[in-house]
Amino acid sequence: MAQDTTSSQVQDLVRRLQLLEDKEQIREVLYRNARGVDRADPALLKETYHPDGYEVHWETFTGNGHEFSDFITTETATARSVYHSVTNPLIDIQDHRAFSETAYTARTLVDRTPELGGWVEVVVWGRCLDVLEKRDGVWRIAYRQLARDGAKRTIVPDPLVPPALTCGRPDRTDPSYLGMAIAERRPPQQAGKDGMFVAQRHLP
C-alpha cells in the first residue's frame, strides 16, 4: 500500500511539474510576441505563431499570423516608439491545447506633424484571447483575437525626446539584443548632481 501511495504521489508531482513547465512556455510565447512587435522583428514574431496560426486584429489586419508578422513590423518600424506591456496571463491547459487571456497595454508615438500638427500618441488597452497548441513539444499561437477595452489618442505638438544614446530602437540594434554582453559596453559613471526631475526638464 505504501509503495502504491508513493507511486501515485510521484505521478501527481510529474503532472504538476509538466503543467508548470507548459504554462511557463506559454508565458514566454506571449512575452516574445510583444517583444517582436516592439522591436519590429518579424522573425521573432513568427516564432510565436504556428504556420497556420490566425490573427484577428480586426480592421487593422485579420489573417495568417506569419503574414501579420510581416505587416505589423513594417508598420512599427516607422514609429518613434512602440511599447506593449502584457500582464495577468490566465492559462487553461487542456491536453495539447490551451486558452489564454492576457491583459495588454500598447502605446505608439508617431510623427503626424504634416497632417495633424504634431506627434500622435495612441494608447490602447484590452486583452489578447489566445488558443495555443503544443505541436512536436512546442507551444505556439494557433488563434488570437483582441478584445479591446479602451483607447486614447493625444496630439503632442512638442514631445519630449530622450537622447539618442538612451533610446530603444525598433530593430535588432536595440540594446536588448546584446544580452549579457550589454554589461561590457557600460557607459562612464555620471553623478546625479542635478537630480532626476531637473534632468528630465532638459530633454529636447
Results as ranks from 00 to 15, higher is better:
M1D: 01
A2K: 01
D4K: 14
T6Y: 03
D12K: 12
L13V: 07
L17P: 00
Q18I: 00
L20A: 13
E21M: 04
Q25P: 00
I26D: 01
R27G: 00
Y31S: 13
R35S: 02
R35A: 02
V37Q: 06
V37P: 07
A40F: 02
A40Q: 03
D41G: 11
P42W: 06
A43P: 01
H50D: 08
H50V: 09
P51S: 04
D52K: 15
G53H: 10
W58E: 14
F61L: 06
G63F: 05
E67K: 15
F68V: 12
S69I: 08
S69H: 11
D70P: 15
T74N: 14
E75S: 13
R80E: 15
V82Y: 03
Y83A: 09
Y83P: 04
H84R: 10
L90W: 08
I91G: 05
Q94A: 09
F99K: 14
A103E: 03
A103L: 06
A106K: 04
T108K: 03
L109R: 12
P114G: 04
P114L: 07
G117Y: 03
G118W: 11
G118L: 05
V122A: 13
V123P: 02
V124M: 12
G126L: 10
R127S: 11
L132Q: 12
E133A: 14
E133P: 11
R135S: 08
R135W: 01
G137H: 09
W139N: 10
R140F: 10
Y143M: 05
A147R: 15
D149M: 09
A151H: 14
V156F: 09
P157C: 07
P159Q: 07
V161E: 08
A164K: 12
A164F: 02
L165H: 14
C167Q: 15
C167K: 15
P170F: 00
R172Q: 11
R172G: 02
T173C: 01
D174P: 03
P175E: 00
Y177Q: 02
Y177V: 05
A181H: 04
A183I: 05
A183Q: 08
E184D: 15
P187T: 05
P188Q: 07
Q190C: 08
A191Y: 08
G192E: 11
K193L: 07
M196P: 02
F197L: 12
F197P: 01
V198E: 06
L203Y: 15
L203I: 04
P204H: 12
